[in-house]
Design a protein around this nucleic acid. Structure first.
Lengths: 149, 149
DNA sequence: AGACATTGCGCAATGA
DNA sequence: GTCATTGCGCAATGTC
């Protein structure tokens, strides 16, 4: 479930080949400059360019390559899960909204039922009061102006 | 207006200096990292490394740099909004859950009320049935009504 | 001590 | 044409 097929990952030509660079094996090959990052700012600091964490070696190392690949996989997985989670959350919102509507409808219905019963009760009470008192003259005033609330 | 203060961006030490790399320095001719991408795979193509979309020029162009910078800003903005949206969605879930609880509590209360009223009704009905059983003589024998004889 | 997971960032392709 | 989105790799960092 977590990993469909990482075999494809290695292939992974997303679109147009873009930066395909292969350091292959032999020959250090140092073409292509990588101007990445900013050209330093004016007022900022002036970090000595001759500073690199990686002493040139390490990068060609097989182990480095392997670590990178593993990390790339991990990153991909993590991002996938992140997206999935987002979608799940969105769906949850929809479900909750639906349930909310259902509950509100139910409340409406119960309220109505309650209102009817209360009215019946009131009517009964009036009838009883009126009937018991004057047995011969039941006043025909069944209903009154009573709001449900 | 697009760049509030790129001075900081350039410096941009979000955590700890990260990848500040400058290709314009002496020494270390070409050890930048470019091994990007994977070593091709089984069915994939074999992209000749000696092929670059960017004829070396273009990249040094001021316009290129400018475009990149602008895109970087756009990317940042987009990602920020994306995260914000995700958080909003999560919060919505919480709100909806709260409201759901509220509604359910209300339903419970209404149901209880309804139940009580119904029970009262049943009780009354039984009483009536017992008392009104004999339609001819429903009155419980008035004590002094006909005692004259 | 290693391995995996997260996160910020830049690049490039694509969408609108 | 510009900006917005998205997939990807890299590196730093966090967690176990």
């Amino acid at each position: 479930m977590s990993r469909p097929s990482q075999a494809n990952l290695t292939t992974h030509e997303h679109s147009g080949a873009s930066v395909i660079q292969n350091q292959a094996s032999s020959s250090a090959s140092c073409l292509q400059r990588v101007p990445k990052l900013l050209p330093s700012a004016g007022g900022g600091k002036a970090p000595p360019p001759s500073k690199m964490k990686k002493p040139s070696a390490e990068k060609d190392s097989d182990e480095y390559r392997q670590r990178r690949e593993r990390n790339n996989l991990a990153v991909k997985k993590s991002r996938m899960r992140s997206k999935q989670k987002a979608m799940d959350t969105q769906q949850r919102v929809n479900e909750l909204k639906e349930e909310n509507e259902r509950l509100e409808a139910k409340i409406k219905l119960l309220s109505k039922e309650l209102s009817v019963l209360k009215d019946l009760f009131l009517e009964h009470a009036h009838n009883l009061a009126d009937n018991v008192q004057p047995p011969a003259a039941p006043s025909p005033a069944p209903n009154a102006a009573n709001g449900g609330q």
